[in-house]
């Protein structure tokens, strides 16, 4: 018989089979954990500060002379959740087109970032906003008033896109 001793009960030695020293060891471990520093973040007081790679709510980049968006509708086309609605109109400016209406339904948005990836003008980017609150379904549809964000606040993300996109 050269059967190897390999079942769980056979691999234990006498003291391990007694359980009690092993249980004491385990208890000692958990007790030592009670005095370690805690991981918990006290959320409303201590906020999480995301880096540039974070995909928060999508926003439209607002430069000094108006939004970058040319209302090509690619973002709306690529959006897997059908959250974006764009209506184009003409403008006297050099870019010739601008979005008359740009709405993102934040209840549908899945924060995938496809809109940002597909945008030829780098006009829609993911921001660092993550605490989105609304009380009605109507409030959840963000129009241009909420979507346009000054370019100065989006530098981290734009820098990240330039490096890694």
């Amino acid at each position: 018989m050269n059967r190897r001793k390999n079942s769980e009960a056979e691999r234990l030695n006498f003291w391990e089979k007694l359980y009690i020293p092993e249980i004491a060891k385990g208890l000692g471990l958990t007790f030592s954990y009670m005095f370690r520093p805690k991981f918990t973040r006290q959320y409303p007081e201590e906020r999480f500060e995301p880096t540039g790679s974070y995909r928060g709510r999508p926003v439209l980049v607002l430069e000094e002379d108006g939004e970058r968006c040319v209302a090509c509708g690619l973002c709306s086309r690529v959006c897997p959740a059908l959250a974006i609605e764009v209506q184009a109109a003409e403008t006297e400016k050099e870019k010739e087109r601008y979005p008359e209406k740009f709405e993102i339904n934040m209840l549908r948005c899945i924060f995938c970032g496809f809109c940002e990836e597909v945008c030829p003008e780098e006009a829609i980017v993911m921001s660092k906003d993550y605490d989105l609150v609304f009380e009605t379904k109507k409030d959840a549809i963000y129009g241009k008033d909420k979507l346009l964000v000054p370019i100065a606040e989006l530098q981290d993300r734009l820098e990240f896109l330039r490096q890694y996109k």
Partner: peptide, 10 residues
Amino acid sequence: KVSAFIQLRI
């Protein structure tokens, strides 16, 4: 509290 402390929570 004890369960939280053992699991490094508050």
